[in-house]
Each structure stands twice: as C-alpha cells, then as structure tokens.
C-alpha cells in the first residue's frame, strides 16, 4: 500500500515538467487572448495561471534549488505575487468612459461603458471635480499634439484648486484615474420651456467628436411635450489643415441650425425659437471632454512586486556572475592554452 505524504504531493505538484506544461498552456491562453476577442473566455488565462501559481507554491516550499537561493526565491515569490495581484486587480477593477462638459461637475451617473470586477468597491460617489476649459494642439495635416484639460478639485479647505491633466498625465481622484482621450467636441446648451410653463429644462446636446467629425456636427433631441428637434452646428474654430492649430472652445463660435418638421431656423447664443409644444433657447456654446476611467487598487503593489521580482532575478544572476564572471573562466583558460599552442581536446565541465 502506497503512503501518500504531504511532501510527496508537494514534490509532484512542484514538478518542473509541469512547469513547462503550464507555461505552454499559458502561451496558448495568451495567444487566444490576442486583441481580447469577445468569444474567448478569460478562463484560458485563469486556468494556466492558477496551475502555475500552484506549481510555484509547491516548488517554493519543496525545491531546495529555489528556497535555498536568495535571489531565485525572491524571483519565484515575486512571480507568485504578480499572479495573485493580477487576480485581485481583475476582481476589484473598474473601467468606463465619461463625457463631461466644461463647467459641469462630475457625477457617477454620467459614466458609461462600465466594466467592473465582482468585488469592486471603490468610492466613485466621492469623486468630485469640475471640468474646466481645455485646449488641444494640432500640427499641420491635423496631427494631434498635446492636450491640456483644466479641472478644479476640492482643496479640503472649502475651496477649489486648479489642475491641468492630459495625455499621459491622468487626473487621480479617490484612486480613480481619468485619462483624456481623442474624443472631445462641442455642446450647445439649450433650454426648453413648454407653452403652458409646466416644463422647463436645460441641458447640453453633445455633438460628435471634433475635429474628427467636423463634417457632421449634428444630433437630435426630443423635449418633453415636443417633437424631435434636429440640430446642426456650424462652427467657426479657425480649423486649418495646412498649419498648426489649437482647438480651444473659448475661441470658437457656433451657429445652431434647428430643424423641426422640415422648418429650418438659425440661432445664435441667446436666441430662441417657438415651435410646437414650447420654446427652445440656445443659451451658449460649450465643449465636452471624453475621459477614460480606470480603477485598480493593486497598481502600486503590482509595480512593487514586478520590481522585486526582477531584482531577485538580477540578484541571482549577480551571484552567478560573482562566482564565475560570465562563465568565462574556462574560456579564458582555453585562450591562454591556445596562445601557448596547446589546445586541449577534452570537454570541460559546465
């Protein structure tokens, strides 16, 4: 009768052949995950990573070639921690998109395209900032340059402090990171008042991204008690493709073309038009900025774990190097013998 011991099980789980097999399985999972295809399950990564983690734990405990070598031990522990942190990160992460108009305060309700882990418990409701104006630099031929987006944040003294974010400088609030995107544009602010005065609402109609869709700055809106209104925004932004240009909503003007049931009216800011059901007033032209929202509480820990992992590997290499510089001793010995004219034919030990 065979006796199964813990050390026996650990040795089997720590098999170096299994390591290679799980690595191969992970490679297959990674290849299947290329470009995040919708029809590929996340399990093609979870399964091999879990198996590798198990293999790593067993090897760290039972393999003296790992646990008695400082650098190699740190490297393997680091790899394990990266797998664990990646798993925690996926369970607690959140990402989404948000379009916010200049002058408006952030609100969790305007976040769209949300993806979050089942254990996400961030404090998105506590996120507070006000979007300010922004500028985007363009080089000739409409090559997008740097984005400067102004935001105002509470300064914990009852006031506000200004910050400028953009491109690789995200806005960081309550652990949430807001990244500016190429997606930004104009938004006319409109007021609607019903004829009987019972309905009065004000809102912004986000026009398509500008200047990407400068040729179709149109959208529609159906007010309460009214018919669908089609809008077309005629913009004057100084846009030129031949020279460098800066997109700045504060310098732009826009005429709003309003179309209801085939009847066309042009409005400037401050003007209004009466139509069936009520009166529409074009209050002002403003801009909106599109942000990508990202939350992962493991980010800093992941960086630290990766750094320690590589440091462990480097330390292991350094130990080998100190013991025998680049493995050159044998080679140098051979060179000297070669220079003296006698080249040994025997194989030397590795």
């Amino acid at each position: 009768m065979r006796i199964i011991t813990i050390s026996g099980v650990l040795r089997r789980l720590a098999s170096t052949k299994l390591t290679l097999l799980w690595m191969l399985l992970l490679a297959v999972g990674a290849a299947l995950s290329y470009d995040n295809p919708e029809d590929t399950s996340i399990w093609v990564l979870i399964v091999p990573m879990s198996l590798l983690a198990l293999n790593l734990i067993a090897a760290i405990i039972s393999n003296p070639r790992i646990n008695r070598r400082g650098g190699l031990l740190v490297f393997h522990l680091g790899l394990l921690s990266i797998v664990v942190l990646a798993a925690i990160g996926r369970l607690t992460h959140m990402d989404g998109r948000v379009e916010i108009i200049s002058g408006a305060e952030f609100s969790p309700e305007i976040v769209t395209d949300i993806h979050s882990g089942p254990l996400h418990s961030g404090a998105l409701a506590d996120v507070n900032f006000v979007q300010g104006p922004f500028t985007v630099e363009y080089r000739p031929q409409m090559m997008r340059g740097l984005t400067y987006s102004q935001v105002a944040l509470p300064d914990n003294k009852g006031g506000w402090r200004e910050a400028v974010v953009g491109d690789d400088r995200p806005l960081l609030v309550e652990g949430y990171r807001f990244y500016t995107t190429f997606n930004k544009g104009f938004a006319p602010i409109l007021s609607w008042t019903s004829h009987d005065g019972r309905v009065a609402e004000t809102g912004a109609v986000h026009m398509p991204s500008y200047p990407l869709f400068d040729f179709k700055q149109s959208n529609s809106w159906t007010p309460q008690g009214g018919d669908e209104i089609k809008f077309w925004l005629q913009l004057e932004t100084g846009l030129t493709t031949e020279e460098a240009w800066v997109l700045d909503g504060r310098r732009a003007t826009g005429t709003l073309v309003v179309n209801v049931s085939g009847e066309r009216t042009e409005l400037l800011p401050g003007e209004s038009v009466k139509m069936a059901g009520g009166t529409l007033r074009y209050e002002q032209l403003t801009t909106w900025m599109g942000y990508k929202l990202f939350y992962d509480p493991t980010l800093q820990w992941m960086f630290l774990a990766a750094f320690i992992t590589i440091a462990g590997l480097a330390a292991h290499f350094w130990q080998k190097l100190a013991a025998e510089p680049l493995g050159l001793d044998d080679a140098l010995r051979h060179e000297k013998q070669h220079a003296k004219g006698s080249v040994p034919a025997s194989r030397s030990a590795a």
């Binding site: 080679a331 051979h334 060179e335 030397s348 590795a350």
Partner: peptide, 8 residues
C-alpha cells in the same frame, strides 16, 4: 573553446 563552454 569546447561547445560546453560556449553553451554555458
């Protein structure tokens, strides 16, 4: 040198 050394 021998292949063993080069390999190492």
């Amino acid at each position: 040198p021998d292949n063993v050394i080069l390999d190492k």
